[in-house]
Amino acid sequence: MSLYQDVTRKPWNTVGLPDGIDPKPTFNVSNEKLALVVFVIVASVLFSLLCVSYFIRMWFGGGDWLPIALPSMLWVNTGALVAASVAMQVAVVSSRKQGHGDKSKSPWFLVGGVLTLGFIIGQFTVWQQLTSQGYILQSNPANSFFYVLTGVHILHLVGGLWVWSRALLRQVRKDASHDISKSIELCAWYWHFLLIVWFALFYLVATN
């Protein structure tokens, strides 16, 4: 029974088991994946509101907005994050190929995480460069937003890395009770999402 049929039917008129004896989830995905999708929506709301605040402060603030000259290091970092996302996707594909039973031996999952660490270290370097150039947090709202936006993005990546490290540990231990290919897939999803968020944030701070 489709979702549409379900929500438009007259429940008082029907008796019985419309789907037979198998319980049907509303969406044909795993619980973990649905929870991740919901979380991604919540995180999107968070980033959207930060972006809206950015524009409101820029347009309707006290007229004290001074754009930042962005360090070229940001492009290197972006490359690292793109590579991390690609590595995650390759890990998904190779773990699918190896099948669910055989634990993934693909190193790409590890590579994806390490590249992400590289991105985070790169972002800290950018912060240092900006600070040394005088773009300190308090001196201008454009700076404040730059640090907050990139900081919140890094926090989301750190959360992702925490999940990643647990999955990696299981992979190393060859823990049979967990389906690692599922963890890899969910990580990849989350990484793609955070890459898109980074594109949006980068565009935002680059065009102020």
Binding site: P11, P23, A35
Partner: peptide, 23 residues
């Protein structure tokens, strides 16, 4: 947020046999 993810996922995915949304 931790609780909310649970409530939403449980209601959408884990309902027992025959329990359609409109029931």
């Amino acid at each position: 947020t931790m609780g909310g993810l649970n409530y939403v996922t449980t209601i959408l995915q884990a309902r027992t046999r025959g329990l359609t949304l409109m029931r």
